[in-house]
């Protein structure tokens, strides 16, 4: 993954995002999902590195799929037509009690489709921060056509993070030495929110005051006077072009299938019905 140009990676990730969101067709979604798995495995990321991200995604998936689609059915309302074949037409027994549950075979398949779609997008985007050199962001966005000012803003903000994190810690320690308690239990919610002010104000105001000096130093060095060059140079290799061409073909194929051949709408494969027929 390190050898792939960041521009090509962003182009691929966005092509995959638009492809996955252009259709609910199960076959197309399955192919996109497979492509996303292959792409993610190329990153060689470990579980330890990404577990926080996957924890967040699992909460998102649980809310969207288990709660909204399977339990309440609300999440499927916009795509799955009303009615359908019940998974348990006569209800089911649990702990000696009889339950009826209106889950349909169609809604269950929609949950699978949602899982394939959201996981495909997650697989493509979750790996970006773990596999991309932070020094390359400015150059990447500049070469993708973003104005130099905006691209440099991204680059600069990466550089400020360690400084501001240190300032935050120093301010927190200084305020604690003065008896400041962020997690004090007294007072109502308004008081609890306002308690953050002694920490937020010095950190923010110090950052603003110091930015004046940085802006003056940049002006003195002629920032913005001519086209900017980047220390981190990006060079396209043949494999980057292959990835870009593949991305374009993938997106174009999905769009043609979805809109020209009417494969855009949600549908349930026959074999899925077979799993629930007695």
């Amino acid at each position: 993954m390190d050898h792939i140009d960041p521009r090509a990676r962003f182009i691929f990730s966005f092509a995959l995002l638009f492809s996955a969101t252009a259709t609910w067709n199960p076959n197309i979604l399955f192919v996109i999902f497979l492509i996303a798995i292959i792409w993610y495995s190329m990153g060689r990321l470990t579980w330890k590195e990404t577990k926080v991200g996957w924890f967040m995604i699992s909460i998102l998936l649980f809310t969207m799929i288990v709660v909204n689609t399977i339990i309440t059915g609300g999440g499927a309302g916009g795509v799955v037509p009303p009615g359908g074949q019940l998974v348990w037409p006569n209800g089911f027994e649990l702990f000696g009690k009889h339950f009826t549950f209106g889950l349909t075979v169609e809604r269950l398949w929609f949950a699978v489709s949602q899982l394939m779609r959201i996981l495909s997008i997650s697989l493509a985007f979750i790996m970006i921060p773990y596999t991309m050199d932070s020094r390359a962001y400015g150059a990447t966005f500049s070469k993708l056509g973003l104005p130099d000012g905006l691209a440099y803003t991204m680059e600069l903000s990466f550089r400020f993070i360690p400084t501001l994190a240190r300032n935050f810690q120093v301010t927190l320690d200084a305020q604690r030495a003065r008896g400041f308690e962020l997690d004090g239990r007294k007072g109502n919610i308004l008081h609890k929110i306002r308690r953050i002010a002694p920490l937020l104000i010095p950190v923010t105001m110090n950052a603003i005051v110091s930015s004046e000096d940085i802006a003056n130093a940049m002006d003195l060095r002629g920032f913005g006077q001519s086209k900017r060059t980047w220390l981190h140079e990006l060079i396209f290799h043949w494999w980057d072009w292959v990835l870009i061409v593949f991305s374009v073909i993938m997106l174009a194929t999905v769009l043609v299938l979805a809109f020209r051949f009417n494969m855009r709408l949600f549908s349930v494969p026959q074999w899925w019905y077979g799993l629930f027929s007695k």
């Binding site: 600069l156 501001l164 950052a207 940085i214 940049m218």
Partner: peptide
């Protein structure tokens, strides 16, 4: 130039504070 620096400082500050409060939840609120 000033806006470039303000935007960069603002973005970094937003990121650091969000990260700091993410790992540091406030009890009772």
């Amino acid at each position: 130039t000033k806006e470039v620096v303000y935007a960069a400082i603002g973005a970094a500050l937003y990121a650091v504070l969000t990260w700091a409060f993410n790992v540091w939840q406030i009890p009772g609120a």
